[in-house]
Nucleic acid binder design. Structure first.
Length: 229
DNA sequence: TTCATTTGACCTAT
DNA sequence: ATAGGTCAAATGAA
């Protein structure tokens, strides 16, 4: 049983992992096409009105002007890359002038133990858990943390040591949601996540709005990530 | 003094 | 050759 509580429009796309071929296209179902690339690892995207504070500590390591893009892309890696070997990275790019819109693309999973609630770590690779704790922000216009189901449930504010200074402060409300078949969504188009995985053996795509009416389909959608039910 | 950010250089894939 | 991603020295802030 996979359970999910989500807020906003969520789009999940799993795709085929092709060794040695790390570019692929993901087509958004209701908005502009999303292009995700590189690496045989899990990636997911989120668009928001402000840079996302996902609760993790990030360190900026680069900025690049992107062809045909109005704004530069910012590159972040986990602060604990070296002390804990955490390979999680993210890219943040402002994609729209008015209203301001940022797209954050996450690569890889956090393996760092920077957690306030270590008992609720989500580890999609772990075979031990029978239900998934996913955590999404539900507090627009001030998204705070745990925007992505693959993130562990760190609750340490990103303000520690001033990291992610461009990001909004964490909200005061709880942002943890058990994944459940009792799906509840708002219809805000401003808040969407695209998930992808390279762990799947076939391409799957599902719009969460459809899942609302078919929880079994949700299970199928999550299956690539959550191999244990 | 330490640590994060900035930014040009460098590397790699296409 | 070009574009995207990463490195690392310089710089700044706490």
């Amino acid at each position: 049983m996979v359970m999910l509580f989500l807020s906003g429009t969520v789009k999940m796309i799993a795709h085929t992992a092709v060794i040695g071929f790390d570019w692929f296209n993901l087509e958004s179902l209701s908005e502009s096409a999303i292009h995700v690339c590189r690496r045989t690892e899990q990636t997911w995207e989120k668009e928001s009105e402000a840079p996302i504070d996902d609760g993790h500590q990030w360190r900026k390591y680069g900025q690049k002007e992107i062809l045909n893009a109005k704004f530069p892309r910012n590159y972040y890696r986990c602060t604990h890359k070296f002390d804990q070997g955490c390979q999680a990275t993210k890219q943040v790019q402002r994609v729209q002038e008015e209203p301001i819109l940022y797209k954050t693309t996450y690569y890889g999973l956090h393996t760092c133990k920077n957690l306030a609630n270590p008992e609720i770590i989500l580890d999609p690779m772990s075979p031990s858990s029978s239900s998934k704790f996913l955590s999404f922000d539900n507090s627009f216009p001030t998204p705070s943390k745990q925007e992505c189901p693959f993130l562990s449930s760190s609750n340490l504010p990103s303000s520690v040591k001033g990291e992610c200074k461009e990001e909004v402060p964490p909200s005061t409300s709880s942002n943890h949601y058990l994944i459940s078949s009792d799906l509840t969504f708002d219809s805000s188009p401003r808040h969407h996540v695209t998930l992808s995985s390279t762990l799947d053996s076939e391409y799957k795509s599902v719009d969460i709005s459809d899942v609302l009416y078919d929880s079994a389909q949700l299970d199928d959608a999550f299956e690539p990530f959550l191999e244990f039910r």
